[in-house]
Design a protein around this nucleic acid. Structure first.
Lengths: 176, 176
DNA sequence: ACCCACATGTAAGACGTTACATGATTCC
DNA sequence: GGAATCATGTAACGTCTTACATGTGGGT
């Protein structure tokens, strides 16, 4: 199976969030908030927008007659595509958790709880995996001495997972 | 300036860590510890090893006459290249901190303290940046309600930076 | 008139993935 | 002898980056 593309869904999500966006505005977005989680250059964005038009996900807004910018609107079909993407199960590999959360505006959306629960599951398994690797690879102090940098980042990774799991649990409680 | 490649330095670091490795062994490594931070498929690794030979970074170990595997050793030149890469200033963009730590075996290496200090600087700046974005974008509660998912991950990102900074500070103290 | 920010687009090349291909060894 | 694993390599393709290219509009 070919690897699932992410960029078109991000563009869809951005247009959906703001109701109406130009290619230039989208490319600027990656310098701000969404830039924490993803990046795309304008040379990627413009052709992608054309593809999305031909797929019927978005359409140019003919109401605005600006000599410079072209604004795009999401179509009903596009709204469905976005919702389906947001509903797809998270994978441990590509880590789309934060990105997808960014596109959920409503506190009461069932997608929200769903995403947090899935991520909690993924992180819990990963946490246990890291603990077992630590036990295996750093079974005694001499191994730590001989691979000190490695032992540092493994401990850091374990702590990070621990923190993330706690945050996810707290967030889940707040959502209930 | 062309974007700096990472893969060859990882291969160099792996070979250096283990003294001697075959392409197959390297590809297996990405299924284990180093896989937390990077991945490469065998179809990338084999040609890369050839390039590294022609650059004089590594050399095949002729002492081992295995009908299957080809083992590679790091050259003195390769050792220098690796050390220089580890000494290059960290950038906020590509986040090579964990990866580079992985290749530092000695607790007393000056590179260790150097890396932690650099990363501390980067994370501290990023932390302040996130706080200012939060103040700007979520200036009142209605903005939070209207972009709930976004506010969640922004708060999560702030907490994560905070945790990471604390860990870096503690680690730095331990190193002194 | 000139410069700069805005705005959109195309082309070439680097990098990485999946798929294709081949051969040796080990285990049953 | 057949299957699975070990081991190396090439080919085709998709994605993303950098560079090239063009035009508009506002400020001085």
């Amino acid at each position: 199976m070919p690897k699932k593309r992410v960029l078109p869904y991000i563009l869809l999500g951005l247009i959906n969030n703001q109701t109406k966006m130009s290619g230039y505005q989208i490319s600027q977005e990656f310098n701000h908030e969404i830039g924490e989680f993803w990046h795309a250059s304008h040379s990627q964005i413009y052709p992608e927008l054309q593809r999305m038009i031909s797929d019927g996900w978005i359409e140019p807004d003919d109401a605005v007659k600006d000599s410079k910018s072209i604004f795009y609107l999401i179509t009903p079909n596009g709204k469905n595509v976005l919702k389906e993407w947001l509903s797809e199960p998270l994978s441990e590999k590509d880590d789309l958790f934060s990105l997808k959360l960014y596109f959920i505006k409503d506190q009461d959306s069932p997608l929200l709880k769903n995403l947090v629960q899935q991520q909690l599951q993924i992180n819990s398994e990963h946490y246990l995996h890291l603990l077992s690797r630590k036990k295996l690879v750093f079974s005694d102090e001499s191994k730590v001495r001989d691979n000190y940098g490695h032992s540092l980042i493994l401990n850091r990774a374990i702590e990070r997972e621990h923190n993330h799991i706690n945050w996810l649990k707290n967030t889940l409680d707040d959502l209930k």
